[in-house]
Simulated scan of single mutants.
Amino acid sequence: MTGDLIFFVSGGMLLLACLLKLPALIRTRGRDRLLSSICAILLVGSGVLFLTAPSAITFLRRATGVTNIAVPAIYILLTAFSGASIVLVLNWRGGPDLSQTRRLSRLTIWIYGTCCALIAVLFALGDTPVEERFRFDTYYATTPYIGEMIALYLVAHAAATFTASRLCWRWSHEVHGTLRSGLRVLATGYLMHYAGYDPAVAAAVGARWTGHNWDFLIEFARLMTAPSAILVAVGFMIPLLGQRTAEAVRYWQLGPLARAVRPVEGGSSPVLLALPWWQPHLRLRLTQRQTFISDRIVSCKVYFDGQIRDEVRAAALADGAAPETASAIADAAMIAAAVELHRHNSKQRSTPPIGEYAQAVGYTADLAHISRFVRSPIVRDIRRRVSTNVQA
Rank of each mutant, 00 (worst) to 15 (best):
L43R: 03
L35E: 07
R93T: 12
L15P: 00
G45W: 00
L90Q: 11
T79S: 12
R62G: 13
F50Q: 09
T79R: 11
V87G: 09
I41R: 05
F50H: 00
S36H: 02
I57A: 06
N91S: 07
V89I: 14
A80D: 10
R29H: 10
I86D: 11
I86P: 08
S37K: 05
L98S: 09
P23Q: 02
L49W: 04
I38Y: 09
A40T: 07
S85M: 15
R62I: 11
K21R: 11
S46V: 01
L88C: 15
L20V: 00
S36E: 00
L78Q: 12
V71M: 14
Q100F: 15
N68V: 11
A73C: 11
A80H: 01
L98R: 12
C18S: 00
V66L: 05
L35W: 09
L104W: 12
L98V: 00
A63M: 09
V44H: 04
G65P: 03
G83S: 04
S82D: 12
L78H: 09
S85W: 14
L98G: 13
V71P: 07
S55T: 15
A70F: 06
N68W: 10
L77V: 07
N91G: 07
L14G: 07
V48R: 02
L78S: 14
R29P: 08
I74A: 03
F59C: 07
L15N: 02
R62N: 03
L22A: 07
R61H: 11
A73S: 07
G95L: 11
P54C: 00
A40K: 06
L78N: 14
W92C: 12
L15K: 02
G12I: 10
D32V: 04
F59E: 05
I69A: 10
S105T: 11
A40M: 04
G65F: 00
L88H: 10
I86F: 01
T101K: 05
T64Q: 13
F81D: 10
S85T: 15
T58S: 15
Y75S: 08
S105R: 03
T52L: 03
S46P: 13
N91P: 00
G95R: 13
F59D: 06
T79W: 08
G83P: 13
L15F: 05
L51Y: 00
I69F: 01
F81K: 12
R27E: 01
L90K: 14
I76Y: 05
T58F: 14
R61I: 12
G45P: 02
L19A: 09
V48W: 06
A63R: 13
V44E: 05
L60V: 13
T28W: 05
L25C: 00
R103T: 15
V44P: 03
S82Y: 15
L42W: 03
L43C: 08
G30E: 08
L22E: 01
L78Y: 04
A80E: 12
G65N: 01
A40V: 11
L35Q: 10
S37D: 11
L51G: 00
L14P: 00
S37H: 10
I69W: 02
G65Y: 02
W92F: 15
T28I: 05
G30V: 01
C18R: 02
R62C: 03
A80M: 07
